[in-house]
Amino acid sequence: MAFIDYYKVLGVDKKATEAEIKKAYRKMARKHHPDLNPNDKEAERKFKELNEANEVLSSPENRKKYDVHGENWQHADQYKQSKREQQQYNGRGQQADYGGGFSGGADYSDFFESMFGGRSARGGGRTAQFKGQDFNAELHLDLKDVYTTHKRTLTINGKNIRLTIPAGVENGQVIKITGHGAAGSGGGPKGDLYITFTIDNHTAFKRDKENLYATVALDLYSAILGGDITVDTFDGQVKLKVAPGTQNGTKVKLKGKGFPVYKKENQFGDFYITYEIKIPTSLSEKEKELFTELSKLKTL
């Protein structure tokens, strides 16, 4: 069998990252999946090649062997062992001439056959099994929706899927629902469902993982003299004591008043407040007079 360049099969560069390989495989696998190309032998052949390439390149260990040994990558360990034995035998460091490659006359390598259920039907063995196509869905939620754990029903390809959305899910996070993809072929397992969350924030709070941030306006008199104020948190209002002489930009941490920690029940991040002191812009004559008196006292 001719050597198969797995990088060309997936259409990626040899320096491609694991994420790039995974993305390329999903895109190509959807295109050539047997369920979408019934009775198309070429699509079936291509799909098998894609699966074989993905199984090799998605494994860092196998990919390293493949990059070094090419078509003989499966025999890398045997090659090294044979080399060590030969060196021990003759003491001259000669490399053993290890014949390798794929089994003669086969459409695909033994590696692929072992991964997907054995020999083809024409070889008298079992029919190859293939995992079903993965589904991808995007779920839009409001920040308030993910403050508490709740259930939601999604309709994917005409089927209703009831799922529990844990509190603390982040924007852009992907969750895998095993076995909710397309049916496999040849008795293979179902694909999986990947849900990407898009979280819209229409609140006055800025979120960074489990921590929340907000700016609170503080009047000049409270900043100078101190006192009690009421501030909004994500789940209600709390009273705060402002220290006399509070400066503009002062930060205060409210421990445990942030956002829920993902999949950690009853654990919350912190809430960070930044004070923004508001300078009065419309003073009465009396106020001006008093501020003038204060300014004179300051200079004494």
Rank of each mutant, 00 (worst) to 15 (best):
G105H: 02
Q86K: 12
Y108C: 01
H75R: 09
G125K: 06
L163T: 07
Q86Y: 08
K159M: 07
L141W: 04
W73C: 01
N136H: 13
A137R: 06
F111I: 01
L143Y: 11
R92C: 07
D110R: 10
W73N: 02
E170L: 14
Y79D: 09
V169P: 00
K131A: 02
G100I: 01
G125A: 06
G132S: 03
N90I: 07
Q87L: 07
Q95D: 15
T148G: 06
G105K: 02
G104F: 09
K131Y: 00
D142K: 14
Q87G: 14
K159R: 14
K80G: 04
F135G: 05
Y98I: 14
A167E: 09
G105A: 01
G101V: 05
E138W: 01
E138A: 10
T153P: 00
D77K: 12
Q78T: 12
E113S: 13
A96Q: 09
R119P: 14
S103G: 13
T149A: 07
G158W: 04
G93I: 06
Q81C: 05
I161W: 03
A121D: 11
L143H: 06
Y98R: 15
S109T: 14
G158D: 05
K144S: 15
R122Q: 10
G104M: 08
M115A: 11
A96N: 09
P166E: 04
K131S: 02
W73R: 00
Y89S: 12
S82L: 14
L154A: 02
N90G: 06
R92D: 10
G91V: 02
T148N: 12
T148P: 00
Q74M: 13
F130Y: 15
D142V: 00
Y147G: 15
K151I: 01
A167L: 01
Q87Y: 09
